[in-house]
Amino acid sequence: MSDYTPIGQEGTFLDHVGGIEWRVEPDAVSSRLTVRSQHVNPNGTVHGGLILTLLDFTLGAEVERSIGEGQQGHPITIQLSSSMIGAAGLGETIVGSARVTARTKTMSFVSGEITCGDRVLASATAVFRNPRIA
């Protein structure tokens, strides 16, 4: 099992969000983020928009990993449905996981969740447009 590393998207929206790391294994992708002051809402818990951003990143990264080599571009989110279940506070680490449930030539169907320790914070299903294969 490898360590988490920064996602390396300098100058992008995800870089502006800050703190997202990921780990790519042969059979799965996971992401994590330690909640900082810029990630919380007025209630002092992680903002729902941040949870959705981490879900979108994680689910798309899993689609990309599962397709493998030879892609031109990245998966494009077509649809994302989520349920917010719990909250995390400042200093807690949240983790995203995903799995592809089905794929056609042009679309991938994926599900995933964000957790904090043993608590589920959100779950989601999504449809992504597959990148072209060279």
Rank of each mutant, 00 (worst) to 15 (best):
T5C: 05
T5V: 15
T5S: 07
I7F: 13
F13Y: 12
L14A: 09
D15C: 10
D15Y: 13
D15T: 13
D15M: 11
H16A: 15
V17E: 00
G19E: 08
I20K: 02
E21H: 04
E21P: 00
R23I: 10
P26W: 09
V29K: 01
R32V: 14
R32Q: 07
L33F: 14
L33R: 00
T34W: 13
R36G: 15
R36I: 15
S37N: 11
Q38I: 15
H39T: 15
V40G: 02
P42F: 14
P42K: 04
V46H: 02
V46T: 10
V46I: 15
H47C: 09
H47K: 01
H47R: 02
G48Q: 04
G48D: 06
G49I: 13
I51Y: 05
I51M: 08
T53Q: 00
L54E: 05
L55C: 07
D56Q: 02
D56H: 03
D56Y: 07
T58G: 03
T58K: 00
G60L: 14
A61Q: 03
A61E: 06
E62M: 10
E64R: 02
R65N: 03
R65F: 09
E69Y: 05
Q71H: 04
S81C: 11
S83W: 11
S83G: 13
M84T: 06
I85P: 00
G89D: 07
G89E: 09
L90M: 14
T93M: 09
I94F: 05
I94T: 05
V95C: 10
G96Q: 03
A98W: 09
A98E: 04
R99Q: 14
V100S: 01
A102C: 03
R103E: 09
K105R: 05
M107D: 02
F109H: 03
S111H: 08
G112C: 08
I114F: 06
C116A: 08
C116Y: 10
C116S: 07
D118K: 03
R119K: 07
R119L: 13
L121G: 00
L121H: 03
L121E: 02
A122Y: 09
A122D: 05
S123F: 12
S123K: 09
F128T: 11
N130Q: 04
R132S: 11
